[in-house]
Design a protein around this nucleic acid. Structure first.
Lengths: 149, 149
DNA sequence: CAGCATCCTCGGCGATACTG
DNA sequence: CAGTATCGCCGAGGATGCTG
């Protein structure tokens, strides 16, 4: 399934080829980190987790309560919180620090790389928030345009 | 379920309160566009669709083939392509232009707002690609650290 | 307190068939 | 060619109970 530029309108070929080459230059192969990291933005909790971790270092239970209170909708299950933190830890965005105590004391914080990522996410959130009114207006226009013929 | 700062470590309270206020200032309420737009980043196709639409204006079938060839994995179904484009159109990121011909001729392009969004996504993709090696290294370290005790 | 295992629900997305 | 309708799969994520 390689790219065959001839099957596309001539106007669009150069841009398409350039995009394909750029994607090939980085890893579009298996276990692609790009897709995985992009997915972090969109899933239900990770973006919020990163914002909260920018504040400082959190114990698991405190982090869980903070997230649950910040989310208007519903609380995060601790199973999912553990999963999300594991993923972030694996990719080098979060550090986990545990003591051998009993009961255990586990805390989570951002690595420099994670802080960088959180900043990117923050920028994106700010961008969307700034465009919120424009988006809402577009939605309203679309909906009234399609509700009644 | 309002925020009760007293239930959190004193060190973290100010930052948490600030974050909560910032979120409240924008819409954290129902039908929140922020979550919806953030979700665009992470879903399987939208980020790629935006990149391709940056090239120019596409007919439905051409766009479908381009996306399918760019995706290493699998082709996008045209049902899903229609759904994604509808969503983007509704939020004001994409314009749909149709003629009354038969067979129909429908083409899609970015609005100025959509071009702006595509640029943001592009920046994020570039950021991740630049960090690809660091992330891959972190993963490898994590995996070997957890595979064998 | 933090983590894991189990079960279950729900929504995203693919496949197919049909219409204008 | 573009869109809609219907079906089915699969994985994300919530709930609960048990362990160190």
């Amino acid at each position: 399934m390689p790219l065959d530029p001839n099957r596309f309108p001539a106007m669009l070929r150069p841009g398409l080829v350039a995009l394909a080459e750029d994607m090939a230059a980085h890893g579009t192969q298996r276990s692609d980190p790009t897709r995985a990291v992009m997915a972090l933005m969109g899933d239900r909790w990770t973006a919020l987790i990163l914002q909260v971790l920018m504040i400082g270092t959190w114990r698991h239970a405190d982090l869980r309560r903070a997230l649950s209170q910040l989310s208007a909708e519903q609380a995060i299950s601790q199973r999912v919180l553990t999963l999300k933190l594991r993923t972030l830890e694996r990719d080098g965005f979060v550090v986990r620090h545990a003591t051998a105590d009993v009961p255990p004391r586990v805390s989570y914080g951002l690595t420099p790389l994670g802080l960088d990522l959180a900043g990117q996410v923050r920028a994106l959130i700010d961008w969307v928030n700034a465009r919120g009114p424009a988006i809402a207006a577009a939605r309203a226009a679309f909906d009234t345009r399609h509700d009644e013929p």
